[in-house]
Design a protein around this nucleic acid. Structure first.
Ligand SMILES: [Zn+2]
Ligand SMILES: [Zn+2]
Ligand SMILES: [Zn+2]
Ligand SMILES: [Zn+2]
Lengths: 157, 157
DNA sequence: GCAAAATATGCAACTCAGTTGCATATACAC
DNA sequence: GTGTATATGCAACTGAGTTGCATATTTTGC
């Protein structure tokens, strides 16, 4: 299988969705496909702006459109900012995520891993399970070695 | 064991933390203890206001303080709003949560349940795992019976 | 290709959660 | 009670995400 340029792959995916093929959609999906981690609206905006200026509202709307069409998915982070990842090949419909407690980076974990069976109160009906592992990413883990992580109670002496 | 009023239990918990016992802290923690689900800042404000008016900034600050002192914990919801629950007796330090896809209600699940073992990329270091089950709560499940949940692609016909 | 219809984009103004600085009120130690 | 540390109230701010509407671009039909 030929490795394809993200920009071409993006165009094919959008065309396959049977929707209008616009520059913003292509470039934004390509940015997500090329990204090493899930991107915030701002990160997407910055990466696409290398090519040409794009309005921030368009960024929000295209991300929403990509998500609705299942070409991307969004993950809720601890900082109340959505991060978006391309929904391609290897990622199952359901997959876990990792968020770095230090730099905030969010990545998709493609391991299907053992599904935890959760007992719900009577009458409740489960539809999906979000699994978010938090910790330190490869870049941040070394930096925290010396921190000697005591059970911190911020703002309290 | 005597069943205690939330207000008394709250005061005891705060006093045990060795901190100043204020009306706002007691009433807000009592509201969390009495709540049937995790509360937003706004819900807390509304419940406490039955007794006396309270500034919204104080609500934020007290919730932050309760969280820092581990008398409460906060859960990130799909609507970018933090919800707070009292951290009492039965809830372990780590527990799963449930969020209703229809009404947004968030509850704590005290089942410790089978911890999923997640494989991380090399160099990554896990510290905690957030597990959020989404679906329909007991109140909303019946209402959705007829909806015949097709694979929805919102905003796309 | 060209015009018309359909829809995506840009812009301005908005909403709403959460934060910050500072003056004042309150809890607690003495 | 008085003094000191700190909690609260108020006003103004930040930043993510949304909405309405005018304009630009993509498609479709010719
Ligand atoms: Zn990191
Ligand atoms: Zn993902
Ligand atoms: Zn519900
Ligand atoms: Zn909880």
């Amino acid at each position: 299988m030929m490795p394809r340029l993200p920009i071409d792959q993006a165009e094919t995916m959008i065309r396959a969705a049977g929707a209008r093929v616009t520059r913003a959609r292509i470039e934004m999906l390509a940015a997500l496909l090329a990204a090493e981690h899930a991107l915030t609206h701002h990160e997407v905006e910055k990466r696409v702006n290398r090519a040409h200026a794009i309005d921030r509202v368009t960024v929000y709307r295209v991300l929403e459109w990509l998500t609705a069409n299942e070409l991307a998915h969004k993950i809720a982070g601890s900082d109340r900012v959505w991060r978006f990842g391309a929904t391609n090949k290897e990622h199952a419909r359901q997959h876990a995520h990792f968020e770095c407690n230090r730099c905030g980076a969010m990545i998709c974990l493609d391991e299907p891993d053992t599904k935890p069976h959760i007992r719900l109160p009577s009458g409740f009906h489960a539809q999906e399970v979000d699994l978010l592992t938090k910790g330190l990413c490869a870049k941040c883990a070394p930096a925290r070695r010396k921190d000697r992580r005591r059970r911190s109670v911020p703002g309290w002496t």
